[in-house]
Design a protein around this nucleic acid. Structure first.
Lengths: 206, 206
DNA sequence: CCATGTGAATACATTCACAGCA
DNA sequence: TGCTGTGAATGTATTCACATGG
């Protein structure tokens, strides 16, 4: 039975990994899996996987396991990625290029629809299928197009200003590649990607 | 007094963020800070910051706070990023280009020294200051050059094979950009970056 | 019989609150 | 006084272990 209590953030953070593993199994032609198998693929305990899923309902069959397609669909709906989210990409540098050309967004619920940059040299240039737009027009475009998700791929020094503009434009989820902490209102979610922080937390153990 | 007990992984994961904030303060010309100020900048509680640091020693002065330069230096040593780690980059696609051109590694303890790719079209081409080398020679080069850190920036389908080669070559820390779980021996650390998983964990709340 | 779903038990992480010292 | 460093208390997360039902 769906549990309507508050779901821990840490559980939400694991759902995309379950979903990713299920999509992979699905692509391999598999129909059914178990918490045991997912456990081996993902490195979490099977009990944890079962408990995490139990926050949202009963998806499995006792003695059998989980019907992959059904669990996949359920997770997509829970995470709200069963339809595509339009995203704005801010920053048309090297990272911006890599993100614009990345083909892994669409299959997982996201697509870039606009690209902005502050550099006058870049405005108007083509980047993939998009034309780079000036950051001054961003706020209005975000509102008009009802864009609620954005990616920050600008230098650290510019990131807070960009974040402020995004928030003003109505964005509520920010994927931040700038190596700096952003300050945003509580209603706005930020997911921070810092590869060097990841590297540093590994070298501790070497 | 330095506590020689086991330090929780989650604490290690925060140290790079403390270090990043300290470097920023330092760049602003500041000399002293407090757990309070770091708390505001980073969004962790001041008690947590003090407790985290206490695993490694006593870095502050009661009534005063932390001498920024000293704490920065100490964290660099704890994380072992007071000297540069040589890294291999595997994958010379768009993401590989962005990583090769990224100027944020050196200041934080890392530098790319070799780039490998499987695509014959790319072998021998220049990417920044590096010439792309064939993946067949990677294992030997890693051993010869004593490279222990690597970045995987190849498609998901190729990632496990690359990881196996890296491990064979003696790599013990892998930054993985491929959207798939890698299976490696326990002595090898993997830090996984999956921007879409980050986006999905935010859209849950929208 | 097998694997889920879940209370209870354990383990882990964070916060509290204050003694101690510059 | 002001802020650190830290045991004790609280709050969260994970694992255990088994009743349940296909």
């Amino acid at each position: 039975m769906p549990n309507s209590n508050h779901v821990p953030t840490i559980v939400i953070g694991r759902l995309p990994l379950y979903l990713r593993a299920l999509t992979q199994l699905s692509a391999e032609g598999r129909r059914v899996t178990s918490s045991q198998e997912l456990s081996e693929k993902l490195g979490f305990s099977s009990a944890q996987i079962r408990k995490d899923l139990s926050y949202f309902g009963e998806f499995g069959k006792q003695g059998t396991g989980y019907e992959i397609e059904f669990l996949e669909k359920s997770l997509r709906e829970i995470l709200q990625v069963h339809h595509l989210w339009d995203m704005a990409l801010v920053g048309a540098g090297d990272l911006g290029h890599a993100l614009a050309n990345y083909d892994g967004f669409e299959t997982r619920g996201f697509r870039i629809v606009r690209i902005f940059d502050a550099d006058p040299q870049k405005i108007g240039t083509l980047l993939g299928e998009w034309r780079v737009e000036p950051i001054e027009t961003m706020r209005q475009v975000l509102r008009e197009e009802r864009i609620h998700v954005a990616i920050i791929a600008v230098p650290a020094a510019a990131a807070q200003h960009v974040a402020d503009e995004l928030v003003e434009g109505g964005v509520r989820a920010i994927l931040n590649y700038a190596p700096t902490t952003l300050s945003v209102p509580p209603k706005v979610k930020v997911y921070h990607i810092d590869p060097v922080a990841g590297l540093q937390s590994m070298t501790y153990y070497l």
